[in-house]
Amino acid sequence: MAGLEDLYREIILDHYRSPRNRGELATPPAVRIEGFNPLCGDEIVLYLEVTDGVVSDVKISGQGCSISQSSASMMSAAIKGKDVGEVRALIRSFKAMMSIPESGHEHDDGPVEEIGPIDPETFGELAALQGVVKFPVRIKCATLSWNTLVQALDEAAAN
């Protein structure tokens, strides 16, 4: 059995205790998307503002466990100021780290390594979430905000 220190890394607990980018944004110009984890009842509300192809602002509200909240907090810090193409690449890399091809079906897109290797330079603090893979039930907690982000990007693009 994997040890708890693999899951609850100090940086994760830090984001959980002091979440970044908490709050709301005016809609429009931002889009607002709700994400739910039916397993645990966690919910996240993501506000995303895209200006000229760049994530100009992001805010997060809702409630959940330390893994879902810290993942959302780290995600918000990682995507703010990045262009949409970079953000989508980051989503692919994050899901690969969680052993999930972006389609959501495992093992149907060839080896996950090809989807996007973990680059410590761009991944930064997010690499701390790697230990979640050893706790399969918690993967959904870690990916909740990222799935919500995909929906938000799609909606922002459609507007």
Binding site: G3, Y8, C40, G41, D42, Q63, C141
Partner: peptide, 25 residues
């Protein structure tokens, strides 16, 4: 402390409890 986190740490001590909405949203 979120129930998922409570349950995860309890599991480390061999203690099995339920965390969630218990099919009663």
């Amino acid at each position: 402390i979120h129930p998922h986190d409570v349950s995860q740490v309890l599991d480390q001590h061999g203690v099995c409890v339920r965390a969630g909405h218990h099919c009663a949203k």
